[in-house]
Simulated scan of single mutants.
Amino acid sequence: MCIVGLLFISRSQSFVVTGVSKQSIREQIWDYMESHDLADFPRPVHHRIPNFKGSYLACQSIRDLEVFAGTQEVKVDPDKPLEGVRLLALQSKKTLLVPTPRLRTGLFNKITPPPGATKDILRKCATSQGVRNFSVPVGLDASVLVDLVVVGSVAVSEKGWRIGKGEGYADLEYAMMVSMGAVHEGTPVVTIVHDCQVIDIPETLVEDHDLTVDYIITPTRVITTGCARPKPTGITWSKVSCEMLTKIPVLRSLRERERRAGKDVTLQSEPGGQQSIPSTVRRPRAIPPSQAGSLGGSHSSLQVQDTQPAATVCVGNLPYDTRVRELKRAVRELGVRPLRLTWQGPQHRAILHYADLAAAQEALSLLQGLHLGANTLRVTLGQQTDT
C-alpha cells in the first residue's frame, strides 16, 4: 500500500492517508472528519467542500494577510466554510464576487447589500441564501479585476497543491476569469481548511489545469506555500466535456469568443480538430428535388460547404411562432455549426446536416436541453448516408 502523506490533526495527533488517487484522498478526508466529529453543517460532508468546526475562526485570520488588507475586489467561493470570509469582505466594504452555483446562470454575481445594512443583514448577505437574494449578475464584458481569489478545498498540501471535491468548478472558474481578463498570473489564491486537510500530495496528481494556492489558513496556522507552479493560463478546452458545455451557458459564450479569436477550442470528446468550426462560408448548394420532397416545407441554408452531408440531427418541438433566425442564433451560441439547416416550420422542426456521424453525434450532445421560449426542444439523430 502506497503512503501518500501524513495528515496533521493537532500537535499530538496524526494519521496516514493511503492511496495515490485524488478520489481516495477525498474519501479518507471525508471519512475522517465525520468519524472524528470535526465536520459541521451541512453533513455529511462527503462530496462537498467540507465545513468544519472552527471554520469561522479560521476565516478571521485572513485579516492578517497583507494580500487581503490591500484588496478592493475579492472573489470568494459559495462554500459554507468560507462564509466568514464573505462577511469580512462585506464589512470591509470590498467588492464581493461569488460564483453562481455550478455556473448555471453566469460566472459570478456581485453581492450588493442594501443601503445602511447592519451587521446582521451583512451576515445574511454572506450566506448562500443571501448570495441569491442580494446580488446582481456580472456579465462577461463587465470591467472586473479581481485582487484576491478565495477557494474551498477538500485537501491541500503545504506546497500549494490543491484537491477539490472532484467536479472541477474552482479550476474552471479561475480559467474562465483568466479568459475574460479578470485575474492575472500574480493574483493570489487563498484556501481555508481544517488542519486535518493539510497533507502531503504527490505532485504527480497535479495537472496543468489544476488551480494551486498561495496561502493556506487553518484554525491554528497561516501557511505561505511559495508555490512556483504556474496557475492555469486559460480554459483547457480539451478537458471540457460536451455535457459541461451544455450545462454552462457562459462557457459556451466564452468558447465562441475564443473561437473567433482564432484559438483552438476542440472539446474533450472531439477528434483532433474534426469539430473545429469552419471559417469559410461558401455559396449555398441547390437542394435536390428528391430531398426537398422528402423533407417538405421551406428551406433555409445556415452554412454550406462542398462537403456532401452524411448525417443529420432533427430538432423538434419548436414553438409555433419560432422564426428560423431565432433557431440559428441559439444553435450558433452553442458552438454548433452544421453544413446546412433545413427549416420545416409547419412541422415545428428543423434538420441539421453534417459531414459525418461523429459530427452529428457531437451536435446532438451539445443541443440536449436547449430551450426556445417555453419549449424544451426535442433533439434526435436523423438519417445517415454513405459518402
Rank of each mutant, 00 (worst) to 15 (best):
S35C: 12
W30E: 06
E27A: 10
R43E: 11
P44I: 03
D37Q: 13
R43W: 01
R48Y: 03
L38I: 07
R43N: 05
V45A: 09
P42W: 06
R26Q: 12
I49D: 04
R48V: 03
R26C: 11
D31K: 09
H36T: 12
Q28Y: 04
Q28C: 04
E27H: 09
F41L: 13
S24G: 10
F41Y: 14
S24K: 11
D31R: 09
M33H: 04
W30A: 10
S35Q: 15
D37P: 00
P44S: 05
Q28D: 05
P44F: 03
I49C: 07
R48C: 03
H46C: 06
E27K: 13
P44A: 03
I25H: 01
D40F: 05
Y32G: 03
Y32F: 15
N51H: 09
M33C: 07
F41K: 13
I29F: 08
A39G: 13
A39Q: 09
Q28A: 12
M33F: 04
I49L: 14
L38G: 00
R43A: 06
Q28S: 12
E27C: 07
E27V: 10
P44R: 01
I29V: 15
E34P: 01
P50Y: 06
D31W: 02
V45K: 04
F52Y: 14
P50R: 09
N51G: 03
H36W: 04
L38C: 00
S24T: 13
S24N: 11
V45D: 05
D40M: 00
H47V: 09
F52Q: 05
P44Q: 03
R26A: 09
W30C: 08
S24P: 01
H36N: 14
D31N: 10
N51P: 02
H47A: 13
D31C: 01
Y32I: 02
K53Q: 13
I25T: 08
S24W: 02
H36M: 10
P50K: 05
S35L: 14
I25W: 01
M33K: 03
R43L: 11
Y32P: 01
N51V: 05
I25N: 00
D31H: 10
R43S: 10
H47N: 15
R48S: 10
W30S: 08
R26I: 06
R48Q: 12
F52I: 07
W30P: 11
P42E: 09
Q28H: 04
D37L: 12
A39H: 08
